[in-house]
Design a protein around this nucleic acid. Structure first.
Lengths: 133, 133
DNA sequence: CAGTATCCGATTGGATACTG
DNA sequence: CAGTATCCAATCGGATACTG
């Protein structure tokens, strides 16, 4: 068993071969890790959608938060916004190429979730059982 | 951390079948989407580590938040905790098999981040430029 | 229909002090 | 060294009301 000092030394030597680049993942999660972003990407993964359609699709998101979420996605270039000057106004949101490129990583995550949820819930149950006994 | 649970329930009631399973991704992000969890997994991806070593490795995390993060990871079965009754005490954290299985999905995300960060920052700069003009 | 502005309760998380 | 408890500032996000 290595001492913690040895571990730290190893980590330092390996810092250019980081198996999980924490910073990179952290930056992504800062953007998509919030309450609604992934839901929106999921909605738009099927094709362009209007504001209220997205809202109905997701369900439970407030008007305000959907606006903010879409604005962030737009500013990051993941979503494009097209406004038609009709009355009433019509605004369509659509994933950009960049946004679509995010679907695959999310699917990998979804697969992990579906495959491992039972194990996680089992672990959680065991953990709570111990705390109660 | 259990913020979008209500949303997940609603989506479940709607029986949508998505290319991106929002419920599943949402559940994962509820767990790993916070500020520190991925950092801890990244630290432990190289091997067992003691509390203060993790803290130094991550840098910027408070004592309190590291404790909470580790406790959550432990309760989900992603991390194991081993305490040695020595003086001073020694506690080692290590990724479980389940925790290690999460590394690959995170690497996919990290790869996406590294590959697309320039595009995202460019988009953000363009967006801000428009808002200013 | 889409978007903005304001208010305010709820949650987050750092700082600090204390314990075994 | 590792962990817990308390306090409190900052942020988040829903509700509501208003505009083009």
């Amino acid at each position: 068993m290595a001492t913690s000092r040895a571990v730290v030394r190893q980590l330092h030597e390996q810092e250019h071969h980081d198996p999980v680049d924490c910073r990179a993942v952290g930056q992504v999660l800062d953007r998509i890790g919030d309450k609604w972003t992934v839901m929106v990407v999921g909605a738009l993964s099927k094709g362009p959608m209007r504001f209220n359609a997205i809202m109905r699709f997701i369900g439970g998101v407030s008007h305000r938060m959907l606006t903010l979420t879409l604005r962030n996605l737009e500013s990051d270039g993941l979503v494009t916004r097209t406004a038609y000057a009709t009355i009433p106004p019509k605004v369509e949101y659509e994933l950009s190429d960049l946004g679509r490129s995010l679907i695959e990583p999310l699917e990998v995550l979804a697969t992990w979730a579906q495959h491992n949820r039972p194990a996680v819930e089992e672990a959680r149950a065991r953990f709570n059982a111990r705390r109660t006994e």
